[in-house]
Design a protein around this nucleic acid. Structure first.
Length: 414
DNA sequence: TCTGGGGTCCTAGGACCC
DNA sequence: TCTGGGGTCCTAGGACCC
């Protein structure tokens, strides 16, 4: 049996811990980052039942002492990078999976740095000393078990799972800790009396498959027996890029969705161009007032990266989606996602070549002109910031329900 | 309990080709 | 003309994760 060399490192209550570090008066107090919505809660606030994603009003009802702070979004990225960077001092095999969390495989590093457990302890100490933040680490033979171990270790702990006793450790834990078991699956399992990972592991294969379908049941069964074959992969590439905007409750009219889509297309297309990507598939999502949502997508012959073209395709798709639901009078969200991303060379990015703009107007000069406008705007923004220049309709149409820094952060490449 | 934004992966049906 | 089988791609929806 191979040994436990995979680390999963996860910063504790990340945004809230950063705020408590930046302002020592907040230490030991229940705080929440955000306002209308709780983006993150400190452990003191979590003790009252406050959770990320919860409406601010509800959080305040649960915890009258709750102190809301505006996020220092620029700091989060910097500090997250610094913490994960500590792992890179021990091994190049680091897989970042979000702003505050990463896997590392330290196989072969023992002669340099000691046992995986010793490395994990040093990582925790260095993040504490150099970044000033608590971080929990799980060490195990597989990625899945390492991630579970770090959850068990929280807050501010270290859990090493010995391969000899890993199933005993795993099987006592609740199924909800497993990767891939969310509210829907947990409810289905609870309905047949399955609450722990051990109970799931003991279920007959065919009844599990009848409950969850072949793919999910095979995956969960493998995880429940700790047969996780996935390797730590450094340098993974994005498969889609998108943006969405909540609208409150607005009439389902073009006057509402057109400017919103132009704003979103501008964000998405400029990110595509910044990464030298163009997208062949465009998907839009429309959420109605009652939160039911539908999607419409189209796959083009050639990839696109121009703001105007993306906005036009998205607007057409939303019009089609709404035409299919004539009874819906109000919408609460629109989204654009692009996928089938193809790399286009830096040289191509500097040329006003077709990039699919001729979808409707073969050989059109308008496509080229739009491309040049986009590139010019990208350059101005690189120098002076995103707000320096933009489409007038975008400036008029936007609604800032979430701080802009959060969006910049969420979209940054990890 | 109805809240925000950015992602990944899976399923099922249909079109199309050989 | 109808029948059969397999593979690939596309579309829409859903579950899940941070």
């Amino acid at each position: 049996m191979s040994s436990a060399t995979i680390l999963h490192a996860d910063l504790d209550a990340f945004y809230a811990s950063v705020e408590q570090m930046l302002d020592p008066k907040l230490k030991g107090r229940p705080i929440a980052v955000g306002g209308g919505v709780v983006l993150a809660a400190s452990y003191e606030a979590k003790a009252f039942g406050v959770k990320g994603g919860m409406p601010g009003r509800q959080a305040r009802a649960l915890c009258p002492e709750l102190h809301f702070v505006t996020g220092h979004f620029d700091q989060y990225q910097r500090l997250g990078d610094a913490a994960i960077g500590v792992l890179n001092d021990f091994t190049p095999a680091v897989e970042r999976i979000s702003i505050d969390e990463a896997f590392a495989d330290v196989a072969g590093c023992e002669h340099l740095f000691g046992s995986p457990e010793a490395i994990a302890a040093r990582v925790r100490q260095r993040v504490r000393d150099e970044v000033g933040l608590p971080i929990s680490v799980g060490v195990a033979r597989t990625k899945h078990l390492a991630k579970i171990a770090s959850q068990v270790a929280k807050p501010d702990g270290l859990v090493v799972v010995d391969p000899a006793t890993e199933l005993a450790f795993l099987h006592d834990l609740p199924v909800g800790l497993m990767w891939g078991v969310g509210p829907a699956t947990r409810t289905r399992l609870a309905d047949v009396g399955v609450a722990t990972i051990g109970q799931l592991a003991a279920m007959p294969g065919n009844s599990l498959e009848a409950l969850l379908g072949p793919a999910a049941s095979n995956k969960l069964r493998a995880l429940a027996w700790n047969r996780d074959e996935r390797a730590v992969e450094s340098g993974r590439r994005a498969r889609s890029i998108g943006a969405q905007s909540a609208l409150g409750r607005k009439p389902a009219t073009e006057a509402v969705y057109r400017p919103a889509l132009l704003y979103l297309a501008d964000r998405v297309a400029s990110r595509l161009r910044a990464k030298s990507f163009a997208a062949r598939t465009v998907t839009v999502r429309v959420r109605f007032a009652d939160l039911r949502a539908i999607t419409r997508s189209v796959t083009l012959d050639k990839p696109i990266a121009a703001t105007g073209m993306l906005a036009e395709v998205a607007t057409d798709l939303v019009a089609v989606a709404l035409a299919d639901h004539p009874a819906e009078a109000f919408i609460s969200l629109v989204a654009i996602a692009t996928s089938h991303l193809e790399e286009v060379s830096a040289l191509q990015l500097d040329l006003p070549f077709d990039l699919g703009d001729e979808r409707r107007r073969p050989g059109s000069k308008r496509g080229a002109a739009r491309w040049l406008v986009d590139r010019a705007m990208d350059r101005v923004r690189e120098r002076f910031g995103r707000e320096a220049v933009g489409y007038a309709a975008i400036a008029l149409g936007r609604a800032a329900s979430v701080p802009d820094g959060f969006r910049e952060l969420a979209q940054r490449e990890l």
